[in-house]
Design a protein around this nucleic acid. Structure first.
Lengths: 125, 125
DNA sequence: AGACATAGACACCTTGAGGTAACCACATGC
DNA sequence: GCATGTGGTTACCTCAAGGTGTCTATGTCT
């Protein structure tokens, strides 16, 4: 697959491709959004789960732990006896809220285009 | 997994989630971008492949055919004897270029944030 | 007593996206 | 004659994302 491409603006590690990786995990962007928009940047596990219809407990914690490793959120554990944990957006995490809002905003404003896509998909099925 | 969620702004079929589906396929957004930005909305198969380092012949045609089914591009075949085919952005396809440019643009302007992410990832490895 | 919530850990499974490689048909160039 | 480029198709394989279900421990509520 060697290509003597004169244009390396499209290498594997270019900025655009790296942005896409943020969205490669199904829930990451939604968690960032919900955390920022609905919970002022900090929320407990249960609250988050209830904010995201369809997410399983496993995927929620798994994604959150990955995000913690990436420095997007901070995990805080309270030694209380019914365990309590909450997650807070870091500064880095807040930066990534911006492109997400950009995208979601576009989606809300262009629902008709999305409808067109969906219509085609169901039609040929 | 039934949740009597009071907030259905986050149902499975809300606009934000549907936008994400555009990016759920690895190459779709890049093809749309390259087609629009580098080739004025129309290009032959081979040209596209050479514009996208790393894509295999199979993934390219497969993605293009899916995009055709979705009404994002138009496929044109020339009956010439070394087969010639080209793909043209449709009006719908052009609409989806916008959010992609939004995202890619953010990525280019915020490469430092992306670097931070990458740094964390390699550090804990 | 027993149900329920809280935040996980762990085992397990399925699905499909994505990738590799080989083959086809044909015309041109060496 | 033989290699090459064109645009595919087809078979095959792999890996990891995502999902389900169960188990833990403990404290309140009824």
């Amino acid at each position: 697959m060697r290509i003597g491409s004169p244009d390396h603006e499209w290498r594997e590690d270019c900025a655009p491709r790296r942005v896409l990786e943020i969205f490669s995990s199904k829930w990451t962007s939604m968690i960032l959004h919900v955390l920022d928009t609905r919970h002022k940047g900090c929320a407990r596990t249960g609250v988050l789960q209830r904010s995201l219809p369809g997410i399983s407990k496993k995927m929620l914690t798994q994604t959150l732990r990955d995000m913690e490793a990436d420095g997007l959120v901070t995990r805080r554990v309270y030694g209380t006896v019914p365990p309590a944990v909450d997650y807070t957006l870091t500064l880095l995490g807040k930066r990534f809220v911006e492109p997400i809002e950009l995208l979601y905003g576009w989606g809300r404003a262009n629902a008709d285009a999305l409808d067109d896509l969906a219509a085609r998909r169901t039609k040929d099925a």
